[in-house]
């Protein structure tokens, strides 16, 4: 019965399905056939959080409309070496009014840029959170930032 309440919360991870793997108890499963990653996290607050990771390339967009339905928000993972690859994802979420935050990859020796410069380069709307993010470690933090942002927008 608890499944009836709108418990499904989704975070769409773009550009690098990585990261969600490292979340603590994840008795989830992975679907690989369509290059989509899926994790389920049981939260201590008696909720089940669903995370969907999908690549940002245009050829995967056919899935996105379903993924954003009822979702809390999205995390766009950006690589400073090719920021332009995020623009389409950002446009997509903005057009649908879905709150999103941007995590800038800080792994693999990617050059650290000043976040303000990154924000400017991305023309990120003011108020949209931007954080450095090692997708292998700080996924939960990014999700907290995202939920806070979504709540701020909703209230």
């Amino acid at each position: 019965m608890s499944e009836i309440a709108p418990l499904v919360t989704e975070a769409v991870m773009t550009e690098a399905g990585a990261g969600v793997d490292e979340l603590p108890p994840a008795p989830g499963k992975t679907t690989t056939t369509v290059a989509m990653d899926f994790r389920r996290i049981s939260l201590p607050s008696d909720l089940i959080l669903y995370l969907f990771g999908t690549p940002g390339q245009e050829r995967f967009w056919f899935m996105w409309d379903d993924l954003v339905r009822g979702a809390i928000g999205a995390v766009v993972l950006a690589d400073t070496r090719r920021l332009d690859a995020c623009f389409a994802a950002m446009d997509f979420f903005e057009a649908r009014g879905l709150p999103y935050v941007v995590g800038v990859n800080s792994f693999d020796g990617a050059r650290r840029h000043d976040l303000d410069e990154v924000r400017e380069a991305m023309e990120l709307p003011a108020g949209t959170p931007l954080r450095y993010c090692d997708a292998r470690e700080s996924t939960v933090e990014m999700l907290v930032v995202l939920v806070r942002h979504a709540m701020a927008r909703a209230s």
Binding site: P6, T9, L47, R69, I72, V140, M151
Partner: peptide
């Protein structure tokens, strides 16, 4: 029919999600 809201999740639900994430 348990028609899911097409709107964003409500604040109360998001608060619970936030609380849950912070307790992980």
């Amino acid at each position: 029919l348990h028609v899911a809201s097409t709107d964003r999740p409500d604040l109360a639900l998001m608060e619970r999600v936030l609380d849950g994430l912070q307790r992980l």
